[in-house]
Structures are given as structure tokens and as C-alpha cells.
Design a protein around this nucleic acid. Structure first.
Lengths: 141, 141
DNA sequence: GTAACTGCAAAATATTTGCATCCTT
DNA sequence: AAGGATGCAAATATTTTGCAGTTAC
């Protein structure tokens, strides 16, 4: 299978050994555009592996810059794939996140830039997160 | 005391009975510009009242539109006072939130508007959240 | 073979719920 | 007095940690 090879290379590029759980969790991310929360992965993976492994795998991926967290106002942190310009420990996902109010999926809008924001005197910005709520393409039909 | 009266009126205006914990929690919010997480309140309140009361009080305030949640990428939901244009169940905090990387306080920048964001075809926005990370005025000296 | 990864058990935290009691109006 | 709010206990849920066994390289 083509995709599996891609994923394996992604892992190797990040000096991570290729294991079953890592492959499967990354597959989930590649299979869908949206973001995934810990709970989603637990469900979708078919209870194949341990809860703890999911926590640790997600943390590893964040550390390596493979995925990034998306801020939310409810208590559920979501994760999404980073584009290639994220390096270890330094995420640069300068794109907008979209949360659909109907289907409640979270999507990265890679093409939408985060606009520059004018801050008051004395404030220095290093990084901005934008989360837009609304109705997504699928649900607005 | 002046402020206490203000807070009492705020509660009455929202058809909430004036109780000790509600007064004290609202005082905390008024005393500082920044946002507060559940844990902060627990500490700052001097362990005066129950954990559970804090949960319930915060939820009540959110429902009534007195405070709003601020999205974060770590697992800690923070709350901040709403301005007057928030009505019950319908928050309209169209301002930018700022998280300082040094002192890690979260501040509402009321004067900074959320810029309009151009979404791709098919997407409809109803509400956007912007969280800027950087160094705040106090810490940049 | 060795270092890294996983699963299990258990601890530590965080959040929710039920109910009896107390307080506000 | 009546309804709502609180505290306590306990049930759930979530996240972290330690360690022994397993797997990738």
C-alpha cells in the first residue's frame, strides 16, 4: 500500500521506530482532513491498543512536530497533522482552524492565512491561533 | 464597598441569587484583568468553598453570559468576564485573547478587533476566536 | 543485543451527580 | 415558606507514572 510507505518514511525522518500503533494512528490522521481528539482515536482505532499508548503516541508526535494541537473552548484538545514546515519543538501552523457547528468536525484551512493583528503598545506577538466557528462545506448543502 | 454593589447588581440583573461564593468568585474576576482557570480560583479563593461549587458557579456564569471561556491548546479552560453585549446563551466576545509566554497570564484585549477572515467557498463563519501568544506589557520591560 | 515501545496496574487529577442541609428572597 | 445554592460523599472520567515484557533496528 502506498500510504503506509509514506507514513513509514515520516516516522523514520523523525527518528521514531515504526510500530503498529504509530502507523495506525497516523493512518487515521491521513484518512481524514479533520482533527482528532484523544477520544476519537480511541473509538476509531477499534480499541486495538491501550489508552496509555494513545496518550504517549500523541505526545511523541507533538514533540516531533508531526501533529499540532488545536485550541478549543471545550475541554477537548484536538490534534491535526502539521505541514512540512513544522520542525521539532517549533510549530508553525500559521493557518486557520475551522469548527463546524453542525457536524462538529475540526478542519485545518491550510490556504487561509492568519491575518496580522495589531496589538497595543508593549505587546509582542510570537504566534497566533485562529479558530473560526460556523458551518462547513459539507453541512451547508 | 462600591464594587460589591456592582457585583450584586450584576447577579440580580441575571436573576441569580446573591450568595457568598458567587460574590467572591466575581470579585476575583474583577480584581484582575486576566482570565482565570478553575484551578486558579481554587487557589486564590483561599480554599474557602468547595471544588464543586466552583464548577457549578462557573457553569452558571457561562450560561448567563457573565463570563466566557477562552480556547487554549493545553488542557486548561480559562474564563474571563464578558462585556455587556453578551446575552444569555449567546456570547459575542469579538476581541482578541492574549497569552503571555513569560508570566502565562491570559488577557482579553478588548480594543483589538478580530479581523475579518476570508473563508473558502462553501464555508460560513458565525464566530471567530483569536488567541495571540507572545510577551505582555508587564513582562517586556 | 540494546534501546525504545507497549500493556497492565495503579496512582493522581479532574469532573459530574445525588442528596440532605442551609441560605436567599 | 419555597426554591435555589451549597457541601459532602461518591461515582465517573481523564491523565500520568512505574515497571515488566515485547518489539524494532
Amino acid at each position: 500500500m502506498r500510504q503506509t510507505q509514506q507514513i513509514q518514511q515520516l516516522l523514520k525522518r523523525n527518528q521514531l521506530s515504526v510500530t503498529d500503533s504509530r502507523l495506525r494512528i497516523l493512518e487515521l490522521f491521513f484518512q481524514q482532513d479533520g482533527a482528532l481528539a484523544h477520544a476519537d482515536i480511541e473509538k476509531k482505532s477499534g480499541a486495538g491498543f491501550d489508552r496509555v499508548t494513545i496518550y504517549r503516541t500523541l505526545q511523541t508526535f507533538v514533540d516531533k512536530g508531526i501533529i499540532h494541537t488545536i485550541p478549543t473552548a471545550d475541554n477537548a484538545v484536538r490534534y491535526a497533522l502539521c505541514k512540512d514546515d513544522c520542525t521539532q519543538g517549533h510549530h508553525q501552523d500559521h493557518h486557520v482552524h475551522f469548527v463546524c457547528e453542525r457536524c462538529s468536525t475540526t478542519i485545518c484551512l491550510e490556504d487561509v492565512e492568519v491575518p496580522a493583528i495589531r496589538l497595543p503598545e508593549g505587546y509582542t506577538a510570537s504566534h497566533a491561533e485562529v479558530v473560526v466557528n460556523g458551518v462547513c462545506r459539507n453541512c451547508s448543502q
